[in-house]
Amino acid sequence: MRALIQYIKDVAQGFYSLSQGLLLTLKYFVRPWKHIVEQYPENRTTTIYIPEKFAGEVVLPHDENNRHKCTACTLCEMACPNGTIKIISATIEGEDGKKKKVLDKWVYNLGMCTMCGQCVDACPQDAITMKNSFELSVYNRNDLIKVLNKPGSKLKEKES
């Protein structure tokens, strides 16, 4: 008899547990405003939330006079685990006649970058940063190889 009561209790408990689950799904069914989906392609310019620190790509910021801070020291190139960065430097003759190494091309291969941030970490001049850009895919693989310094840009000398 006790076994029978226990059995009935088990069945009732089973049904109760199932009904609890059903109530939960019904709760979400009747409350569509609790839903969490984002309307991604539509909200890409409006409500999309990309945090400030999000690492989308490496950029070499230029100031308003088209000057950057890279001294072509190639520490970032050495810090990169994937060989993403290639610094091509040129030697020019300064105004005072001294030969100087300056940045010619800051070549960045986005296709090989894992956004580990080692280059930003290694840079002694804080010349490069991570930008929170997204939707960077292109149709041609060669388009992923970018030259980050703008044409005609110059080194921003430290104010001393």
Binding site: I36, P51, E52, K53, F54, M115, G117, D121, M130
Partner: peptide
């Protein structure tokens, strides 16, 4: 997703962060 958002805000990445680094944390 909410926790990943916190990761994204603080470390820059969602899944493979490379945030903890020898000596401390990246940022």
């Amino acid at each position: 997703e909410r926790i990943l958002e916190i990761f994204e805000e603080n470390t820059g990445n969602r899944l493979t962060m490379n945030y903890i680094t020898p000596g401390g944390v990246m940022t």
